[in-house]
C-alpha cells in the first residue's frame, strides 16, 4: 500500500479583488468582487513508503497548498487523500504522531530559549520515552553536527543552524512521513549541502517517506530520483528526473574549441549560437541533427576539442515553466473575457 495516495485533490481559494485607490477601498466595504483561484486542480499521485520525491514548481504553483492539505492544515474543495491510511484533515492524534511538516520560512522553536528546551517540550507533547528520546537526539545531533549549539538561544543561531534545529525538532518523534517545504531557502551553499546530505542519509537510514519542495534544482538533483512538477495547480509531469530531459529537451549542447576564431554568422548555420568567445563555441542543436552537425563541424572547422552535453535540467524546467505560463496567461485572458467576475456582498 502506498504511504501517500492523492486523488483529484482540488483547492479553490476565493480572493477579494480590491478596486484601486481610496474610493475603491470604500466601495469594498459593502460590495466586493471575488475571483476563484485554483491553487490545486485535480492533483493525483501516489508515493510509496521510503520514497524521496521532489515537488517542483514556480512560486504560486500550488506546492505548499498540496503540502498543507496533506498535513491537515487545509481542507480540500474536492478530492481525497490518505497518508498512512489516515485522512489528513481529520487531524487524528494517531496521524499527528506519525508525520512532520517543516517549513523553511516558519520557526517552531522557542525563540528566546535554547533549542534543547523546545526539544524537551516536544518529548512531552509526543510522549517519547526518555531513553528513546536521548538516543534519537544523539543520532540527529551527531548527523547534523549541532551538539555544541544545543544550549545556545535560538535567536543567536545562524539561519543554517536554526534550520538544522528545526529538522531535529521535527524528527524527534520518528515520523514515518516527512513534508519539507523549502528546507534550504536562504541558506548559504555549504549549509544547503549539509542539509541536503542529512536528508539523504536520514531517508536511507530510516526509510522515511519524504516529499520535498524546493526552488533549488541542486536540491532536487541531489536528492530525488522522482519528481512531480506542478504548475498553476496542475500536475504536468510525474516521473524520473532523467526523463524530463529526454521528454522536454529537444536539443543538445555542443561545445568545441577551435584553433582560430570563427565568426558567429558562420556558426549559425549549424545551430543557434549560445556563446562564441576566443574560439570557444557553444551551440544548441536539435537532438536529431547532433551527429550530422558534429560530422560537418569536424570536417569544416579546425576543432581541437569537442563535447556533447544534455541541456542542464535547470534550464529545461525554466523553459517548460515559461512556456506554460505564456500558455496559462493566454488561457486565463480567454476565460476572463468569457465571464465577468462574480459579485458578492459583505
Amino acid at each position: 500500500m502506498p504511504a501517500i495516495e492523492v486523488h483529484g485533490l482540488t483547492k479553490a481559494f476565493r480572493t477579494y479583488k480590491k478596486i484601486p485607490g481610496f474610493l475603491g477601498a470604500i466601495r469594498g466595504l459593502w460590495s466586493r468582487a471575488y475571483t476563484a483561484t485554483l491553487a490545486a486542480n485535480d492533483v493525483c499521485f501516489s508515493i510509496h513508503e521510503g520514497e524521496l520525491v521532489g515537488f517542483l514548481g514556480p512560486n504560486g504553483a500550488g506546492k505548499t497548498t498540496v503540502l498543507k492539505m496533506l498535513s491537515g492544515l487545509l481542507y480540500p474543495t474536492r478530492g481525497t487523500a490518505t497518508v498512512l491510511g489516515h485522512i489528513p484533515w481529520e487531524r487524528e492524534n494517531a496521524y499527528r504522531r506519525q508525520f512532520a511538516l517543516v517549513m523553511g520560512q516558519k520557526n517552531q522553536l522557542w525563540w528566546d530559549l535554547p533549542a534543547h528546551e523546545s526539544f524537551e517540550l516536544n518529548r512531552e507533547i509526543y510522549g517519547i520515552e526518555r531513553k528513546t528520546f536521548q538516543k534519537k537526539l544523539d543520532e540527529l545531533v551527531d548527523l547534523l553536527e549541532m551538539r555544541e549549539k544545543l544550549n545556545v538561544m535560538v535567536r543567536e543561531l545562524s539561519l543554517g543552524e536554526r534550520m538544522k534545529m528545526e529538522l531535529i525538532a521535527a524528527l524527534l518523534h520518528s515520523p514515518r512521513v516527512l513534508f519539507l517545504d523549502e528546507p534550504t531557502i536562504g541558506l548559504d551553499v555549504i549549509s544547503q549541502q549539509k542539509v541536503r546530505q542529512f536528508i539523504r542519509e536520514y531517508n536511507e537510514r530510516h526509510r522515511v517517506t519524504i516529499l520535498l519542495t524546493s526552488h533549488y534544482m541542486a536540491d532536487i538533483e541531489a536528492l530525488c530520483d522522482r519528481v512531480i512538477i506542478i504548475h498553476q495547480g496542475n500536475i504536468f509531469f510525474d516521473g524520473r528526473l532523467s526523463e524530463i530531459v529526454n521528454r522536454f529537451a529537444d536539443s543538445k549542447l555542443i561545445h568545441f574549441q577551435c584553433s582560430d576564431e570563427p565568426s558567429t554568422s558562420a556558426m549559425e548555420r549549424f545551430g543557434s549560437v549560445l556563446e562564441n568567445i576566443s574560439g570557444h563555441v557553444r551551440l544548441k542543436v536539435q537532438r536529431a541533427n547532433v551527429l550530422k552537425v558534429c560530422k560537418q563541424l569536424l570536417e569544416e572547422v579546425p576543432i581541437t576539442d569537442l563535447n556533447i552535453e544534455e541541456i542542464p535540467i535547470d534550464d529545461v524546467i525554466r523553459e517548460i515553466f515559461s512556456q506554460q505560463s505564456a500558455l496559462g496567461s493566454r488561457k486565463l485572458a480567454e476565460q476572463r473575457a468569457q465571464s465577468a467576475p462574480r459579485k458578492a456582498g459583505g
Binding site: S71, G72, L73, R91, N93, R96, R97, F99, A100, L101, M103, K106, Q108, N122, I125, Y126
Partner: peptide, 10 residues
C-alpha cells in the same frame, strides 16, 4: 500562521 504547529501536533 504559527498555530500551524499546534494543529500538526497532538
Amino acid at each position: 500562521g504559527l498555530i500551524n504547529q499546534f494543529l500538526l501536533k497532538p
